[in-house]
Every structure is written in C-alpha cells, then in structure tokens.
Design a protein around this nucleic acid. Structure first.
Lengths: 353, 353
DNA sequence: CAATTTATGGCAACCGGTTGACAAAAGCCT
DNA sequence: AGGCTTTTGTCAACCGGTTGCCATAAATTG
C-alpha cells in the first residue's frame, strides 16, 4: 500500500516557480499600476495599444515599468489572446546541411521581428512530422514546414488551423516558397553542352520528393532544348553514401556529365568515381544541387546549382509573419532564383587517352 | 489629429484566437469534467498527479479526454506553475557546423523527454547572447549555452534564475559538459611523433575562447611529453577564411605538422597550402578539431580530433532535464571523450625532393 | 453657454489550468 | 455499532494579462 505513493511525484515539482530562484518576484502590471497610480487595465493598454491612453499617463506608466524593469509574462498574455509571438519550424533532418541555412534564415528574421523560433525535426518520417506539427500547433502562432514529407491533405489541415508556410514544395492552397530551378538548371545544362557533352544523367532523390521531380523535369526540358540526351537514374537515399552507391549506374549509363538531386549525392558519387580512378572533370563532369556548406571542400570543388536556402528560410518567415499580421497574400507561391555556381567538378570532356 | 489612430493596430489582431481558424474550440478540462461528471479540479489531478484519484474515475476521465481529444493548453498550465516543458539553446553561430550536431543532440533528447527546444543564436556577440538569454529565460524552464561568449558572472547570474548547462566551457558553480581534449590530443601528437615530425604548430582560435586555450594547453603538454617543439600561431577568425590567412604564418614557422583550433581553420589552411603547391601530407601534416560535417570531403580527407558534439548536446539536455526534475548533481562538470580520427591529411613527412 | 461628441480611465469578467483547504465517503479497528 | 484514519472529490482562489462596456472628463460645436 505504500506503492501508489509514486515517489517521482517530485518530478512535477520543478524549481521554477513564479518567482525566480533567488526569490525576487517579477514585476506585474499590477505593481506598475500601483506605482503609477492607475488601474491595471490602463497599464495593459499603455503597453500594448498605442494611442489608447493619454501621452502623460503613457509616460507615467512607461517610467514605472522601466523602474521595475517589467517584462510581460508571455503566458499570461497568450492565455486570453492565443498570441504567442512564436513560430515553429519543422525540418526533415537536422543533420542534413540543406536545412542549416534554412534554419538560420528563419531564426534571423524571427529575432529581427521579435518572434521566437521553435525547432523540431521529423527524422524524415511523415508520421513523426505530423506528430511534431500537431504538438507545435498548440504553442505557436504559425508554422514553417521545410521539405515536408507528409500528405498535401495533412498540410492543408494544419493550414486551416493556423498559418502555415511550406518551403521546397508546392501545396495547393498553402503559401509556399520554392526555388525556381529553371534558371539554374538551364545555365548548368548550357554550360555542359558548351563543353561538348552529349549525354547527361540525372541521379534522382527520394521518389516522394516533390523537389526531385521538379529537378528532373527541369533537366529533361533543358536537355531537350540543348539537344542533349537525358537519362534518369535512381538513388537509394539522398546522402553521400547514396551517391557512392549510384556510381556503378552512372558509369554504366554512358553519360559524360551527371546532375544529382543534391550535393550530398554529388559528393559521394565523386568520391566513389575518383576512388575508381575516374578523373573529374576530365572524364566526367559532376554538378550538384543546393550549394550546401562544404560543397567547395572537395577536390575539385563542386559545381552546383545554388538554391538560396537562407533566403528561403527568411522569406518564408517574413511571409508567415506578414500573414500573422494580416498583411500579405493568403496563398501565393513565392519563387526564388537559382543560379549555377561554376567550380571545378564540371568542364570540358577530354578524349580518352 | 487623425494621426494617433495608428492604422497598424491591425497588426495586433492576429487571426489566432482561442478557437482554431475553422471555428471549433479546443476541449478544456471543464468539457471533460462535464462529460465525466466530475469536478474540473479532479480532471486536472487525474491528468497530472498520478495516484491522486481513484482508478475508476481516472479511467472515466481518460476516456472522456480521449473522446474529446483533449490537449492541455500549455499556457494555462504555465501561468500558475511557471513550468513550460520547454528549454532554450543558444549557440554562438548557427552557420558554424560545430553547432549542428549539438543542436541535433539537444533536440533529440528534448523530443524524447517531451520537451520542446527553443533555438536562438548570438551571432558571436556577447551582448546579443545575453539579450537572447534574458529573453528566453521568461519562457523556458532551463537553458543550454553552447560555447557562450559572455562573462562567467553573467552566466552565473542566469544560473541563479533557472537551471543552466554550459557546453564547451567550464564555469565555476555551473554544470558544464566539456569534451576532454587530452586523450584525443595525445593520440594525435603521438601519431605525429611516430611519423617523424619534430616541430608542431597550433593555430589558435579566438582569444576569448575558453576551448581554444584548453586545446593549446593540451597540445603543449602532449608535445612536451613526446619531446616535440610546439609553437602557437594566432588566427584572425575561426573560419575557412581565417585558415587561409594563417597559411603564411604556418609556412614561416617551419613546423612540419599543424594542429588547428577547429576543422574550419584546418580546411582553409589546407586549401591555401595546396594552392601554393604544398603537398599534404607529404610536406606538411594537418590535423583539425571537432570532426565537423564535411571534414572528410577534402582531398586528402582531414585528420581530426573528434569531439562528440552530438553527445555533448544530448548529455547537456539530459543533465538539464534531470536538474529540472530534481534528480542530478547541482554543479559538476561532465567530461566526454575525444579521439583521433586518422584520415589522409596527416602522415609521414617525405624528404624534400 | 448648453448640447454633444470624443478621449480617457476604471470595473469586472475571462482565458484554462493548478492547488491548498476542507468535507464527504470509505475502510479499519476494537 | 461507534470511533478513527485514510481516500477521494469539491470549492474557491489564484497565476497575469486582455478587453468589452460604461462613466466621467475634456474638447468641439452651434
């Protein structure tokens, strides 16, 4: 009978109480009201409704607030209003450098506009992603989904609840921020054509990836325009390792130039080919996608179609914030430009010795 | 006189109200109480105080909660208790890959233990960092500071308020998680000695970096032990670019092996040396620190002293969570092991041709 | 100068949980 | 059966802002 007294109820008694650990309680609007000699509601108005109170009481209150170095309690504010000054960002994989810049872009604009960023990852799983998103919805004003893996319908369901912005994918009825691959791809393919390549392989990403499909479309179209052969190869996973595994298929394809779904694949592919004695770019040209961190660490440095990831993050955050504030379109798709970053891994094909 | 009516008060009327945008309000404990035929406070207890209510009412309430698919309102809970099930992570620079793994480690354990991670960056500035920390303190249960730039005193002040865990630095009286450099460094220096090197240069990081000082200490001690000369060089900034700029000093130093404060420096240094025709590792060996993402993209791949960054992040999060739950030491320093990752950028010195 | 509009501050209810105090109910004992 | 301890549920106050409504003071107008 002593058992039910679970001793770990201590777990619920955290040290964080209403006043900080050193004992001095935080100032409230009631304290300010007392000091300034006005009603708490007037304090509330002075602090959040510009122009609602007279200039002199405003000053009175502001001074009192400064003196007590008052800070609003975000929870007390969130409770009646539902506003939290917080938004969520869910990425498929924190390990994937593609998202680093997105995170950074979003974080920067969040801080800039006095919002707080809450981060979660879905570990590339659609269900984890949905769970994380649902959890977040309770505590944030809006949500950014970077390369989401879940259904369009699930996304739309979330978007019915609170503003949602999607990065790297287009979902009908939901505002999206998507790199427009065409410019970058056509530059890349033109560069390859100019260097005498006739047959181009595209190593695709995950079958469910919206972006992979767009890139393949772009490559095929650009190759057609430049009168090059285009062949599509599959990859097991969009990582360095996946790139290594794709090397066999690439060599068998007979292509002299390869575009890969992302830089990770390109790097793995290049490593494996070089290990097999293939000289890049003399015998084969390799072009990646995204221009992630480290793309220029390789030898030769990787030619790639840059997606302005950081810009995507900050544009998405801006869009979301505008949405939250009533400004901004309800559901357009914003396109950001891509461009070819010409480095050493692509170039003129040398005749076999 | 029409001016004071700032039209952008619309900015404060976000669409997020108490019920979701589609109109159906979220279930509350009052709804559950009604369905289950008990008092709201009983519902509250059933849901958060295990063992406080009888098994059958417990079930009754849980069923009702499930039926209404109830979710606690975190703000309503946070208001009286101060508990938020949230902790903050502040990193010096989101762009720096060193922190990627830390973020990931922290995020993973956070999610695992039903906490939410809030992320902020300080852009390498002590004041921004302090501001961000202060802002966060209002909304989180605890804080993790990764490689903080602010004063020890400021950190201790924060720690007096709420639990704080520091990564990559030791602060008296505050629990810290620090990679223990000794093992990794001695392995590295021994390997260099075994390969016939006599003089080792260390390219230091930022002067205010605690970790840079530790690493230099370690290098000096290990070199003494192995009877090697050790010389310390400065860098302008701990980035690839900083590494490039350090190349001149490295060559002038006459050292045949270099350890750098971090991998970024090592990569930049290697790029610059190779561009000048120096062969790595035949003419000079290069060893980095951390084993960041991309350290193996270089040619030759970078030898480096790995810090288990992901582990640091998750250990710090675990420590913090234990602290929050009353378990765990108040203020010990946890050390995690480092190890040498031998790749191609270090090796035997070849005699000059 | 009275009538009316407008600007300003106060009152009180409310957001949705949490928790100490207490009473009713149940279990245990002699 | 009566008295005593232990469970279990209820009451009501509280956390700290927000906001609709109203009353008063001030400004405007004829």
């Amino acid at each position: 009978m002593t058992e039910p007294k679970t001793p770990d109820v201590a777990a619920t008694t955290g040290p964080a109480k209403k006043h900080a650990r050193d004992g001095k309680p935080n100032a409230t609007i009631y304290d300010i009201a007392k000091v300034a000699g006005v009603n708490p509601s007037t304090v509330s108005r002075a602090l959040s409704k510009p122009g609602r109170v007279s200039a002199k009481t405003q000053k009175l209150i502001e001074d009192a607030a400064a003196e007590l170095n008052y800070q609003v309690n975000p929870f007390a504010r969130a409770l009646p209003t539902g506003r939290t000054s917080t938004f969520g960002l869910i990425v498929a994989d924190i390990t994937n450098p593609t998202f680093f810049d997105i995170i950074r872009g979003a974080e920067t604009t969040a801080t800039l506009r006095d919002y707080t960023l809450v981060l979660a990852e879905s570990a590339e799983s659609a269900v984890t992603e949905l769970t994380a998103a649902r959890r977040m919805m309770a505590t944030v004003d809006g949500l950014i989904l970077a390369s989401p893996r879940m259904d369009d319908d699930d996304i739309r369901a979330l978007a019915r609840d609170k503003p949602v912005v999607v990065i790297n994918r287009e979902v009908d009825g939901v505002p999206c921020v998507v790199p427009d691959v065409n410019k970058g791809i056509s530059e890349a393919v033109r560069s390859l054509a100019a260097n005498g390549h006739k047959k181009v392989a595209f190593v695709a990403g995950p079958p469910q990836s919206w972006m992979s499909a767009r890139r393949w479309d772009g490559v095929r179209a650009a190759c057609e325009w430049s009168r090059l052969d285009a062949v599509r190869l599959e990859s097991s996973k969009p990582t360095v390792d996946g790139g290594r595994q794709a090397a066999r298929a690439v060599r068998d394809s007979g292509a002299t130039a390869v575009l890969t779904y992302n830089d990770l694949l390109a790097i793995g592919l290049m490593q494996e080919l070089q290990a097999a004695g293939v000289v890049v770019p003399d015998q084969i040209s390799i072009v990646g996608f995204d221009d992630i961190f480290g793309a220029d660490f390789t030898t030769p440095p990787l030619t790639t179609v840059r997606s302005p990831l950081g810009e995507c993050g900050s544009v998405a955050a801006t869009l979301l914030l505008d949405l939250l504030h009533g400004t901004g379109d309800p559901a357009g798709t914003l396109r950001v430009e891509t461009e070819l970053v010409l480095r050493g891994s692509s170039g003129r094909l040398l005749p076999p010795r």
